[in-house]
Amino acid sequence: MKRQGIAESLRDAIAEEMERDSTVFCIGEDIAVPGGWGGAFTVTLGLEDRFPDRMINTPIAELGFFGVAIGAALMGMRPIVDVQYGDFLFLASDQIVNNAAKMRYMSGGDCKVPLVVRVPVGATGRGSQHAQNMERYFIGVPGLKAVAVSNAYDAKGILKSAVRDDNPVMIFEHKLLYGSKGARAESGAVDATSDIPEEEFTVPLDKAVIRREGSDVTILSWLLMAHFSMFAAKTLAGDSIHAEVIDVRSLSPIDYETIGPSVQKTGHVVIVEEGPKTGGVSAEIAAGLLERFGEYLQAPILRVASPDVPVPFSPVLENAYRPDSRRIAEAVRGLLS
């Protein structure tokens, strides 16, 4: 057992998968540079020493290197693509949406695209273009799977499952969760470390997880908001409000099997999302819950999300943009009162 943050546990997971399977390789900008950074967030730091031929450092060409990764996947390789900042996915989206997601279907099942895309997201003092929560843009694309990792254990187990999956899997990671100490510590970083067992483990791609049990309200969230929801639940417990907190984790498909019984039990739902409220993941979850469990709801589903504005730079404004535990707790109190 060792204590690790997300950056380290992802690094170990990648190394173990590369060790296990010679078709696994990493591709992206600023990886595998001696004396370099290991990608924008240190995740692949030093792996070039162990796998010199399988760490492909690319030109700054997102459309191109996503296409390269997908082409290699079609030929039986298992690329792990690092996009530096999730915002840059817009440049690569033709390759992801038109090729990776559809190739299997339009070939009538003749080919497959075993691709892993690692996507750092979240507002972190970098202004509007290095900040967006990109998961909303990809959950509605049939052929893609989307997962969000909020602690080091999940990060390791999910990365391994993603590498072994025969489909394109997008893993969303939060920049404030990579590590709260040392080189990776960002202002506002939250502790997402876990005890990592020595023995091998995986975490399924399609399962939500109950982080805290409670009977009064179900709080659904992921990434940084999963942590803020836990903080809020602790505060609410002081007022004898027992919140059940579920880390949705699998954003496509949504795991209604895990979420459903909680909604049946509490009859109250708050969904928390970093990112503009309109057209977000929480809208999809709310609609999905209404269709499936509407009769159990004792009050309307509530969403706590960012306002419909671009991510601002000023720390004051950014903090107002990003939902926090106080807003979550207030929303729960409002819902139950």
Binding site: G67, G71, A72, M75, G76, M77, M103, S107, C111
Partner: peptide, 29 residues
């Protein structure tokens, strides 16, 4: 795939990076 042709790409130029990636796979292996 058995005959050596991936599905046609109807997005103009979309197959060009794919081809580079397919060739990268051949080179790596």
């Amino acid at each position: 795939m058995e005959k050596g042709m991936i599905p046609g790409i109807a997005i103009v130029a979309g197959g060009i990076p794919l081809a580079a990636g397919m060739a990268l796979a051949f080179k790596m292996r």
